[in-house]
Amino acid sequence: MNLNINNVVKQYEVQRALDDFTFSIQKVPSLVIVGPSGGGKSTLLRLFAGLELATSGEICINGQQIINDESWLKEYRKNVGVVFQSYNLFPHWTAMENIIMPLIKVHGYSVEQAKETCLHLLKKFDLLEHVDKIPAKLSGGQQQRIAIARALAINSELLLFDEPTSALDPQLTSGVLEMIVELKKEGTDILMVTHEMAFAKKAADYVVFIDQGKAIEHGTADDFFNHPKSSVLREFLSHTTI
């Protein structure tokens, strides 16, 4: 993926979440965003997802500029897959309905087409046994994997993950992370906010550290974890277990 972010400001009522944020990468298959809570990483991801408007500045993903216009963003959102921290699945729908309803209602698939796409994905990720279960009957990890399958179903070239494992019990995270690694191997571009440093180390091609609304440091995963330059990052890494 290519990213060009120029002087992006995101101002909430009292708080400035992104402060003149500038950052760019070329041809990076998987980017991981790390940083302390409240530093601006989730805000950045929401801007990428088209869920919020930047106060000012310019964001370009794979050559496409995000336009600050609600009706344009509506169209844009349809083609970006997002997986949030938790409660991704709608509780009144089965796993299958969660996947096929957006395909049918938003993307104009026929019911048969949608079901076929859904079953293909669930089979591929070994989730077929859960097809008719409602979220309450699934573990948090299974829910997240189905949410990822749903994000994949729309054939987006880019998947965004906002701390997809941070609401899960530790023993449930591995299944979700393995699925993400598998996607990466297949060539899907991944942009992920996470606290899982071990995972970041393993799966990220490039890592950016965000604090106080700015990109403090970024680099390849190897450089980033083994040779951190700034003292803030060194401090941050020393507090995280890898």
Binding site: K74, K78, F84, Y87, M101, P102, V106
Partner: peptide, 29 residues
């Protein structure tokens, strides 16, 4: 929960569809 509305937005459902397919079926129950 608001998270459901955000998720629905990110999936590209419009306001009417969010009421029709996501909010009302749950509210009704």
């Amino acid at each position: 929960p608001q998270t459901q509305i955000i998720t629905a937005n990110s999936l590209g459902f419009n306001k009417w569809q969010i009421y029709r397919y996501i909010i009302f079926p749950q509210v009704f129950k």
